[in-house]
């Protein structure tokens, strides 16, 4: 077969890749050893980054894309897909990760935004993107820019699931509310939530987002992960929740099993036994406005 007959980087390939992650757990890792532990525990993919969100909170300063050397070490250490985070709007960090061979890019509010006006024009890339969202309007704006996967933002690095729940309920609730609307009302609604009308129509027809929707930001236990699945998530991202717990191996395996059996409380009970301490949590109400990550990018 001739090379010119192959088509790369299409919308279908990007969304198809995201779809293969469904029912899975994507784990944050900062080095090759952690990546191997995640793979061994049954992660569907790993997210490579410089520091996990709870450490970013502690250290402060500008949080950027990880060192390419580290990303390459992680890529070489595992056979599962490797994702990487870039700053909102930082299209050159995205070009760098694409060149390195990262399988998906997370344009993430966990890092310090590089552009307060625009997100990355993701349609120009061959590699698929995942973006955070807190409500339907935000999710559809990202999809319109080319995101192949959405993750509800939650509040990263807190070990507190309350914001993840709020954002998942927002999106699922807004999609359900479309059911009672006719086309004109939906057009009006699209204007109100600042989203393209054709994407609102598509959500209404499918009864879901046009792309895979994962949950993120505060998941720290198997029960947290299973709750997000029951609320309608297609899968979960776990950031600090694994490698800031007292026994990462056990916690990682338990969360994978809980996501697989999210509707079976007896399984969740079994895998939750004797896990040691979950990551230390933070009350999101005590965060100062400048410590809140979810409001970055809209």
């Amino acid at each position: 077969m001739k090379l010119e007959e192959l088509r790369f980087g299409t919308e279908l390939l990007k969304r198809g890749f995201a779809s293969m992650q469904k029912g899975g757990v994507i784990m944050d890792v900062v080095n090759a050893d952690q990546a191997k532990i995640a793979e061994e525990a049954g992660a569907v993919a790993v997210m490579s980054l410089e520091r996990v969100p709870s450490d970013i909170r502690k250290t402060g300063g500008v949080a950027r894309m990880a060192d390419p050397q580290k990303v390459i070490e992680i890529i070489d250490a595992v056979s599962i897909p490797v994702m990487g985070k870039v700053r909102i709007g930082h299209f050159v960090e995205a070009q760098v990760l694409e060149t390195l061979g990262v399988d998906m890019i997370d344009e993430s509010e966990v890092l310090t935004p590089a552009d307060e006006q625009y997100h990355i024009d993701k349609k120009r890339f061959k590699v698929p993107f995942v973006c955070g969202a807190r409500d339907l309007g935000e999710a559809l704006r990202r999809i319109n820019e080319g995101a192949a996967m959405i993750r509800t933002k939650g509040e990263a690095g807190t070990g507190n699931v309350v914001e993840a729940v709020r954002h998942m309920r927002n999106i699922m609730g807004e999609i359900r509310s479309l059911k009672g609307m006719d086309r004109q009302e939906m057009t009006d609604y699209a204007r109100a939530i600042e989203a393209p009308a054709d994407l609102v129509f598509e959500c209404s027809e499918r009864g879901r987002l046009p792309v895979v929707n994962f949950s993120a930001g505060g998941i720290a236990t198997p029960s947290d992960a299973a709750m997000m699945m029951q609320l309608g998530a297609d899968g979960v991202f776990v950031g600090s929740g694994i490698f800031k717990s007292s026994n990462p191996q056990l916690m990682a395996k338990a969360i994978v099993e809980a996501v697989n059996h999210f509707n079976e409380p007896e399984v969740i009970a079994r895998v939750s036994k004797g896990l040691g301490d979950a990551m230390p949590g933070l009350d999101v109400h005590t965060l100062r406005a400048d410590e809140v990550l979810q409001t970055r990018g809209r």
């Binding site: 077969m1 007959e5 192959l6 088509r7 790369f8 980087g9 299409t10 279908l12 390939l13 198809g16 890749f17 897909p81 694409e98 061979g101 399988d103 998906m104 061959k126 590699v127 698929p128």
Partner: peptide
Amino acid sequence: GRQKESFEAD
């Protein structure tokens, strides 16, 4: 290869 080498073809 990796995702960037994923493709569609007839």
